[in-house]
Design a protein around this nucleic acid. Structure first.
Length: 283
DNA sequence: TTTGATGT
């Protein structure tokens, strides 16, 4: 009798041990692969939230060519991170007709909620840039609703479009490699929602030239723009964006590099005066 | 060829 119990017990222990090995090896592989993907799609670590406030809490959603820091509280991305490199000219895929619900958002975020809201479905990871550099599957990912935020048409179709065009037509040929972090800025006195999604009061975009001596340009653009403003009017320091978003950008950057890069607005070498007033393609 | 959307 005792012999039978002890045999079954040993079998149970052995089974548990094998399960544990699978769990450890499996999660180790997941962690290693996830870290590799994050390094490829971000720069110097994904944005971290300041632990003293709930506003920055987010979880990382991974797509083919970009990462999304998703907030279940704002029902919105807080940041989107992607990499760009020069590619030969080739036709890109057709613009898809609609926007897809993303099963990873806890609350249902549906394209219809934007209809007649007065806000565009504004891309954070841009359709054209991602399609050009990363191909069709990545392009389709940008039409997931977790990559979309409510943007006023004069921002989305004019200033934001002009900025994204300058990134692809000027900054990328000039520097060959770029890392971009972009996202919304919220104002606690402006609590309007589209569906479940909180409407941002402004948007930021940080463009980084990686390397031993990194450069960075940061923009903060309010919803209320007319559309024809010179782009350099919206330049800010990364420190200011960190104060407004309660995020810590590039947490793995060594402090002696981070301090000047994030405190200063350094425009030398970007040839901004040549592109800041370039007219948009629409309206 | 090719950069944003809307709505019929």
């Amino acid at each position: 009798m005792i012999a039978v119990i002890s045999y079954q017990f040993r079998r149970l222990v052995r089974g548990a041990g094998i399960s544990l090995i699978f769990a450890v090896v499996g999660s180790g592989l997941w962690y290693w692969q996830e870290r590799e993907v994050r390094d490829r799609l971000s720069w110097m670590g994904v944005p971290e939230w300041q632990t003293t406030s709930w506003q920055g809490f987010n979880r990382v959603l991974r797509s083919h060519a970009f990462l999304v820091g998703w907030s279940d509280i704002r029902v919105s991305p807080l940041w989107v991170s992607y990499a760009l490199h020069e590619t030969p000219d080739a036709p890109i895929g057709d613009r898809p007709h609609g926007f897809a619900q993303d099963w990873r958002s806890l609350w249902p975020v549906i394209s219809d909620q934007y209809t007649h809201s007065g806000y565009d479905r504004g891309h954070l990871a841009p359709n054209y840039a991602i399609a050009r550099v990363h191909g069709r599957a990545a392009q389709l990912d940008t039409f997931q609703m977790t990559n979309i935020t409510p943007q006023r048409p004069d921002l989305n179709r004019r200033v934001w479009q002009r900025l994204e065009e300058v990134v692809m037509d000027d900054f990328l040929p000039r520097f060959e490699q770029l890392r971009v972090v972009t996202g919304p800025v919220f104002d606690e006195h402006f609590m309007h929602r589209v569906g479940f999604t909180q409407v941002p009061s402004a948007f930021y975009k940080i463009i980084v030239v990686p390397g031993e001596h990194p450069r960075a340009l940061a923009f903060l653009i309010p919803q209320t723009v007319r559309g024809d403003e010179p782009l350099d009017r919206f330049l800010v320091s990364i420190d200011e964006l960190e104060a407004r978003t309660r995020l810590d950008f590039f947490p793995r950057l060594p402090e002696d590099v981070e301090t000047p890069l994030e405190a200063n607005i350094e425009t030398k070498g970007w040839a901004l005066q040549r592109v800041a007033r370039r007219p948009g393609r629409y309206q």
